[in-house]
Design a protein around this nucleic acid. Structure first.
Length: 604
DNA sequence: AGCACGCCGACT
DNA sequence: GTCGGCGTGCTC
């Protein structure tokens, strides 16, 4: 009898590779090992250990143990299988992306076992939601807090330190500390863990609390494996392991709100906090070179005079067509989302169904004759503000666009400024009630982004800004769409006003959470085209009953072509079945196929 | 994914 | 005659 181990690697291959286990070592499922693969030594994860009577002679031995003990128990391994299947990503890539980087430390104890009775997931919204979460953690046996970014993980680590020592599981700490954190949780030496999505599988005793902070943040589904939203991983894990799942969000995702409505989760609405005055100012009629309406300029002047700070929200470049008279945004009739406007080609294109058409002569809503592209870029806004407030310290801040040293300089300037002009990420600079004024210069651009989540994102942004404005301060939204439910909901501080109509829109046009989407992107591998791969995929999808595949459309630059697929709750399985062996990357030489299930950001 | 092998075009 | 393009298939 020879002991052999099945090992998976970070590679797009689903089959495990089998290695001989040297007699002097013991390995177990869920443990990482190093082994020779394709001429190099690579780190893989042991899935199974078996005894084989007559092992193949070409089996090579495992070269080294990486984790002293398994990091994943059998329930965690099952969960990883589920994540891989849901995201159509190989088991190895998924698993290895969910483990802390290997570090040279030894441990002693195995991870905990399985299952308890599932609580209904709790969504905390409203004022004081974070304090409430803190209380719940205080009363829990053990807790894991997953945040959308490292900064937020740091803040939560600080807060939790007041309760008990905290195991930090994200990349803000060194690899050795991360590994030690994982172990301390597994051994029960620590009861509190904090991290970003790399902490999703950190060992927890059953009955522990698993929290997701700011559930609506796109940071919970960044590009790359594990290609699944942290919310969905935690909900599934909670159900499997009997964890108490708690999420906080000022503005929960429409998906999560729908779960609460269907009683699959509980909405723990807390008190409404004090709310600033919200003004919707119609920007029509102000001069073309003027970014600020009189109400916004007045609010700014007062705030600056009182020594309070101002945030001006601008949007990154967008390209939609709007009516200068009634404010309507030109939308695809079939898909209900804004057409992308290309001035160069003078054409309107729908990113979902791919239909393309020349611009209409008159507004479909009011028959007005003034259809124009939106446009208040960040530079023009800055010039306009400097002209108007020459003595104010004005800074631009686009944290999403710039990383590194330039980003740090920009940030330092923004922290010291009286007026910060920036995109959504810049709001992170300000704590609750820290602002005198938040102004949105041209948010109709946001509402006009060609994405079915445009309204949800704009709503979350306005709400988040309002929470950061002092109750005696002002939020001014310069919009021609005063009647839009997202604006009304913020103005009246009433979430229902937003989610009701939004769910209706999603249901009518078949968007999540009622239907699921996937993107299949095909990038040409070499200089030539994709060798008909896109057509093959389209043909394979066309035959599947449960799927609707839209015609492939060209992406900008050299990014290839994309097919948007709509399906039901079982989309991952249906899609996998329809694609069949096209998923096995081997045969599709000429192009690189990339499948993204439940996309959150439709660019990139 | 990496990597090696392998078969066709322009060069010291 | 070789160097090197990237199309093809494999890695325990």
């Amino acid at each position: 009898m020879t002991s052999v181990a099945d090992v998976v690697f970070d590679a797009p291959v689903d089959q495990p590779f089998t290695y001989r286990v040297p007699p002097e070592v013991t390995v177990r499922p869920g443990q990482r090992v190093a082994a020779p693969l394709g001429g190099a030594e690579r780190v893989g994860l042991v899935l199974a250990v078996r005894d084989e009577a007559a092992p193949s002679a070409r089996l090579r031995p495992i070269s080294r143990i990486v984790d002293a003990t398994p990091l994943l128990g059998s329930s965690a391994l099952e969960l990883v299988r589920w994540i891989a299947a849901q995201s159509l990503t190989s088991l190895g890539s998924t698993a290895l992306s969910l483990l802390p980087p290997p570090a040279d430390v030894a441990g002693e104890k195995p991870p905990p076992g399985v299952v308890g009775s599932p609580h209904s997931p709790l969504v905390l919204s409203g004022s004081g939601r974070e304090r409430r979460l803190l209380e719940l953690i205080g009363g829990a046996g053990a807790a894991l807090v997953v945040t959308a970014d490292i900064e937020s993980a740091g803040r939560w680590a600080q807060r939790l330190e007041k309760l008990d020592p905290v195991a930090r599981l994200d990349s803000a700490v060194g690899d050795a500390e991360r590994a030690a954190s994982w172990e301390a949780l597994a051994a029960g030496h620590m009861r509190l863990g904090v991290g970003t999505r790399s902490a999703l599988l950190a060992p927890l005793p059953s009955g522990a609390l698993a929290a997701l902070v700011d559930e609506h943040e796109p940071g919970h589904k960044p590009p790359g494996p594990p290609r699944l939203h942290s919310r969905d991983v935690l909900l599934e894990r909670g159900a499997r392991e009997g964890l108490r799942v708690v999420q906080t969000s000022a503005t929960p995702s429409v998906e999560m709100w729908a779960r609460c409505q269907s009683k699959a989760a509980t909405l723990g609405s807390l008190a409404r906090g004090r709310w600033p005055a919200i003004t919707i100012a119609d920007p029509r009629g102000i001069a073309r070179r003027e970014a600020l309406t009189p109400p916004l300029a007045r609010a700014m002047r007062e705030a600056l005079g009182a020594g309070r700070r101002v945030f001006l929200g601008v949007s990154r470049q967008s390209s939609a067509l709007g009516c200068d008279e009634c404010g309507a945004i030109v939308r695809c009739e079939r898909c209900g989302i804004a057409f992308a406007w290309s001035a160069a080609r003078r054409s309107l294109t729908c990113w979902l169904c791919g239909v393309s058409r020349p611009p209409m002569e008159t507004c479909p809503e009011c028959a007005g004759r003034r259809l124009a592209a939106f446009g208040w870029g960040i530079e023009r806004v800055e010039q306009s503000v400097r002209r108007r407030f020459p003595s104010a310290r004005v800074a631009r801040y686009e944290p999403d666009a710039r990383r590194g040293r330039r980003g740090d300089e920009q940030r330092a300037a923004a922290v010291a400024a009286d007026v910060v002009i920036g995109t959504r990420g810049a709001l992170r600079l300000f704590g609750p009630a820290a602002l005198g004024v938040a102004g949105f210069v041209s948010p109709d651009q946001l509402l006009g982004v060609p994405d079915f989540r445009a309204a949800e994102r704009a709503f979350a942004l306005f709400w988040s800004a309002a929470e950061r404005v002092h109750p005696d301060g002002d939020v001014v939204i310069q919009s021609r769409n005063a009647a839009h439910y997202a604006l009304e909901a913020v103005t009246r501080q009433d979430l229902d006003i937003f989610y009701g109509p939004e769910l209706k829109f999603r249901a009518e046009l078949g968007y999540p959470p009622f239907r699921r989407l996937a993107f299949i992107t095909v990038r040409p591998r070499g200089s030539a085209g994709d060798g008909g791969l896109t057509d093959k995929i389209a043909a394979a999808l066309a035959g599947s009953a449960g799927l609707v595949a839209y015609p492939a459309m060209a992406l900008p630059g050299r990014q290839g072509r994309r097919i948007v697929v709509k399906g039901g709750a079982d989309l991952p399985a249906t899609l996998a079945a329809a694609l069949g062996d096209l998923l096995g990357v081997r045969r599709l030489r000429p192009g690189i196929m990339d499948v993204e299930v439940d996309p959150v950001e439709w660019q990139s």
